Amino acid sequence: MVTVADVRSLARTLPRSTEHLVRDRVKFRVGSIVYVAFSRDELTMGFGYPKEQRNELVAAEPDLFFLPGASDLRFNWLCCHLTRLGPEQMTELVTEAWRMVVPKFLARQRLGH
């Protein structure tokens, strides 16, 4: 099971990433853009993800992924259950969410693509 501490360890290595506590929820941002956020009980995680691809991911793994609430459907955002998320998958999801919100040169420096 992935925890907030696991995500925090990764997020601290990502350039320009900062952690914030907003209304009792842990969020990771680059500037003012949130790329990862946790539910108050820290059992689910929302993360940046392309809108046009999220239905496919939810359909492929409905026990793990779910759509955000109606008010967040307009954003590039998807959610998952932390109890079902593995460390490698978390690393990929968080890193890609971060990549979506940083300048391309910074993502290339860090990720090499």
Rank of each mutant, 00 (worst) to 15 (best):
C79H: 11
V36E: 03
R99C: 09
C79G: 00
E42C: 06
N76F: 04
L67W: 10
H81V: 10
A60G: 05
V101T: 05
G46Y: 05
L57I: 15
R40Q: 13
F75W: 12
V34E: 05
Q89I: 05
K104P: 02
F47C: 03
P68R: 07
L82D: 07
L106I: 08
G112H: 08
R110H: 10
C80N: 08
L64R: 14
V58Y: 05
F75P: 00
R99K: 15
E88M: 08
A37L: 11
M45D: 05
V94A: 12
L85W: 06
P68T: 07
R40Y: 02
T44N: 10
A37N: 11
E52T: 14
R99D: 00
W98V: 00
C79Y: 09
D41R: 13
M100D: 01
Q53T: 11
L73W: 10
V58E: 08
N55D: 15
Q89W: 02
C80Q: 04
G112A: 06
T83F: 08
G112V: 05
V101M: 01
V34Q: 05
C80L: 11
R40D: 12
S39I: 06
F75M: 05
N76K: 03
R99I: 01
G112Q: 10
R99F: 01
K104I: 00
Q53E: 15
L64E: 09
M45Y: 08
A97Y: 03
D63Q: 12
K51M: 09
T83I: 07
E96L: 07
G69E: 14
